[in-house]
Design a protein around this nucleic acid. Structure first.
Length: 127
RNA sequence: UGAGCAGAUCGUCUUAUCGCUUUAUUUGAUAAAGAGGAAAGUCCGGGCACUAUAGAGUAACGUAGCGGUUAAUAGCCGUCGCUUUGAUAAGAUCAGAGUAGGAAAAGUGCAACAGAAAGUAUGUACAGGUAAUGCUGUAGUGAAAUCAGGUAAACUCUACGUAGUGAAAUGUCACGUAUAUUGAAGUUUGAGGCUUACUCGGCCGAUUUCAAGGGGUAGGCAGCUGGAUCAAAUUAGUAAUGAUUUGACUAGAUAAAUGAUAAGAAUUCACCUAGGUGAAUACAGAACCCGGCUUAUAGAUCUGCUUUUUUU
RNA sequence: GCCCUUGUAGUUCAACGGAUAGAACAAAAGUUUCCUAAACUUUAGAUCUAGGUUCGAUUCCUAGCAAGGGUA
């Protein structure tokens, strides 16, 4: 099991992101909100992921960068908890967007536990 | 020795594990490199690219002592004037700080309160003077009172300067549907359109046929980082800055890399007390590239000035 | 990335460069009432910050700070 997070797994297409926010479903576990959508995209990865921190809440670019890095790190280390990735089922492709809805910066441990909670919610929803 | 102010420089480090971006070897992987002094604000000025531009005038906007510097500027340097602070006994000089500092004798406007009067103004009291008279001086109000008054960061005038849009510019490749645009020829003849905001002036039209190839998808690549660069020495100059020589310089992402976790070290502060415990380590994150300005900044070092204590 | 606008009482807005910065609602105190509401009377409260021009600045200029918006 390798904890990688390469370019193919990154959500980059503007079109897909637009679709995601228009039609995607949402799951919340403070301070993270997950927006997800089952759709087709032409990459090898089962899930493409993006991370977002609103500029309105965090005015300085340094703070936004740090939170995004923490989110990305916690996703990278725990993504194997997701059944889709475990099964490597490429017929069920998804796109994810993690939005940080907290009002202040949090530690890595707090973010990680919230991330795990969201993963378990997502897995049970799929069954 | 402590405190304060001003300026300059630096602005955390090491190891392990797991990752990210770029480059090279190569296709398993390995190696190397990977945020700043402000990368910020976007306040000025350029480079670069594309578009536009026959010409003239007006408008609009910017700048404003003089000289220098620079690719260029509203930056920087020098200097004169003005304002202001300190020193000595006045004058004056010295030292520091600030300064958008052209024109009020072209014209228009504005000036609360006070004051007779604030600009087609001539009053009161006293003194002087005359043939006579606001003819002269002083007092009083006010920021300014007869002096071609004050105010141009009021309109304005003068001098000089200014085309527009910004790398999401622009070029190219791929996919791929359908018709903008341009050129030539024939027919027809004037509504309107374009030309820097306006005027003069200038240019163009509509339709049919033929020929050339445009637009979109914000997908890939180029643009994209070695340059008005940095450091040292010599040299020209009061200085800003220039010249020569030598050496140095691998960030290039694109919903956007430069990180996470753990341990240790360093510095500062607090507590117990002479080595432990706890806390903190700023401001802040490249986005085409440079030169300035402005703002934010824990802590450390150096220099100068002021002041306190101790010793001689 | 680029561009634009606005900052005045707690809130919404006024104010040629000229007296003590005004109005409405809100707040506080009082009158009225057995108590409350309504009504009436009164009070307190502000020019985003720092410089400059001017005799004098909310107004003009410069720099900063904050908020909002547009564009692709």
């Amino acid at each position: 099991m390798r904890y990688t997070f390469g370019k193919a797994e990154k959500l980059k297409s503007r079109k897909l992101i637009e679709q995601l926010f228009m039609r995607g479903d949402r799951l919340t576990s403070f301070p993270i909100q997950l927006v997800y959508l089952k759709t087709q995209h032409n990459t090898d990865a089962a899930i493409q992921v993006g991370f977002s921190v609103p500029k309105r809440r965090f005015k300085r670019a340094v703070d936004r960068n740090r939170i995004k890095r923490l989110l990305r790190e916690s996703y990278r280390l725990n993504k194997h908890e997701l059944q889709i990735i475990q099964e490597a089922d490429y017929t069920k492709k998804h796109i994810f967007m993690f939005v940080y809805i907290g009002k202040r910066e949090m530690s890595f441990q707090e973010i990680e536990s919230a991330m795990l909670k969201i993963f378990s919610q997502f897995n049970s929803n799929k069954k």
